[in-house]
Simulated scan of single mutants.
Amino acid sequence: MHQINTSKSVNVAILTISDTRDQAADRSGQAIQALLQNHEHVLIDYKIVKDEYTMIQHEIETWEQNETIQAIILNGGTGFSPRDVTYEAVSQLLDKQMDGFGELFRMLSYEEIGPRALFSRAVAGSKGATAIYALPGSTNAVKLAMEKLILPTIGHFADELVKK
């Protein structure tokens, strides 16, 4: 059986996508930070950018070039409103998409919020040697994704992306 590394410390950058939040009001970004730190992962950088396609892509590309950053977790902008462009910005950059991430996230969300889970366009995958996750902006959604999907597998994902 293939073992999943749940103990490896991973260096992470967090990007909150919001036209209105600042760091004091960013409960989802704060929740991601707290959960990462509780599991002994290292926060390398944290930023908030507006829901603008080019701004989102610029931050991802900049962080992907930083060899100390192994994973990027985005939150916000994954819905269907005209301003929600995170899914498009992220999916266009991925070398490989982790299809099961979005599927499992929506399944777990369905158990909590019912059919409204259909409106989530959460996505994950890799660009180069960097794991990338894009989550909804809801604090409950962030906690669900972190606790059930990301934290149990992020060490393994980072290991898989290391050039051997």
Rank of each mutant, 00 (worst) to 15 (best):
L151G: 05
M55W: 03
V123K: 12
A71N: 06
A129E: 14
I72C: 02
K164T: 12
N5Q: 14
R21H: 08
A158F: 06
H41I: 01
V10A: 07
A13Y: 01
G79C: 08
A145G: 11
G77M: 03
K143Y: 02
Q3C: 10
T86V: 02
L135N: 00
F80D: 00
I44L: 04
L15Q: 02
F105I: 00
R27C: 09
K127T: 04
P82F: 14
A31M: 14
T78E: 10
Q23W: 10
D84L: 15
M98G: 03
P152D: 05
I69L: 09
L144G: 00
M55H: 13
G102S: 11
N66E: 11
F101W: 02
A131Y: 11
L151H: 02
L36G: 03
Y133V: 11
A117T: 07
L43D: 11
H39Y: 05
Q92T: 13
Y87Q: 03
G29M: 08
S7L: 14
R116Y: 07
H156A: 06
M55F: 11
S81K: 09
M98S: 12
G155K: 00
R106Q: 02
D26Q: 07
Q30I: 10
K127S: 12
T6F: 08
L161S: 00
A134H: 01
A25F: 04
A131H: 02
S109T: 10
P82H: 14
N11A: 15
E40M: 10
I113E: 00
T153N: 15
N11I: 08
H156V: 00
N38S: 13
Q37T: 14
K143I: 12
E64G: 14
Q65C: 13
Q70S: 08
I150L: 03
Q70W: 09
V162M: 10
G137Y: 06
D84Y: 15
A131R: 01
T86S: 05
K8P: 01
R83G: 05
T16M: 06
L108K: 01
K127A: 12
Y133S: 00
L15G: 04
W63D: 09
Y110C: 03
I44H: 05
S120Q: 09
E40F: 11
A71D: 02
V162L: 09
E67C: 00
M55A: 15
L15M: 04
L43S: 07
A31P: 04
G76T: 06
Y46W: 12
Q97K: 15
I56D: 02
T6A: 13
A24E: 15
L36A: 01
L94S: 03
G155P: 06
N38D: 14
D19T: 06
L36C: 06
K163D: 13
T6S: 13
T54N: 09
D22M: 04
N75Y: 12
I48N: 01
L74G: 11
I17F: 03
I48M: 03
A141I: 07
K96H: 14
Q92I: 05
I113L: 03
L161K: 03
